[in-house]
């Protein structure tokens, strides 16, 4: 099976080669698709772990024991106010009504609470104002 998770590395863990230990010590394949690790802050890494379910769970347990916070993968859609021109082309492809046009001001509003993270709007925006971020 494959499992996508977000790994959070508190500053005190960043120096430890824990991911390397997982790769060497457990029968799993680790595919890293996004990382953000800076000195003295919590680092983030998006990984896909492939292997037998039991082995994946053992590997994740090892990471937790070593201070790594393991979270299910989260996606987030963001809309840049700087880039958005409020044309509204995104509104027509949004099945969840999370993107809508205010009929008075004609501004395009994005309601994160309604967003179902389908991502249909991302490549529909010609201004590249909408992005999907994985965390």
């Amino acid at each position: 099976m494959k499992k996508k998770v977000t790994l959070e590395f508190p500053p005190e863990v960043i120096g430890k080669p824990v991911v390397n230990d997982v790769i060497k010590g457990y029968d799993v394949v680790v595919n890293i698709f996004k990382t953000m690790i800076k000195p003295n802050t919590t680092g983030m890494m998006g990984v896909e772990i492939e292997g037998a379910e039991k082995e994946i769970n053992r590997a994740l347990k090892f990471l937790k024991k070593n201070g790594v916070r393991v979270k299910p993968l989260e996606k987030e859609i963001t809309k840049s106010e700087k880039l958005c021109t409020h044309c509204g082309v995104c509104v027509s492809v949004c099945p969840a009504f999370a993107l809508s046009v205010d009929r008075k001001t004609f501004r395009v509003n994005f309601d994160k609470k309604k967003c179902i993270l389908c991502g249909l709007c991302v490549d529909a925006c010609p201004y590249r104002a909408i992005n999907i971020e994985f965390w």
């Binding site: 021109t85 409020h86 044309c87 082309v89 995104c90 395009v108």
Partner: peptide
């Protein structure tokens, strides 16, 4: 959805 922005 509009391609041209009424807001702008």
């Amino acid at each position: 959805g509009a391609i041209s922005s009424y807001y702008k």
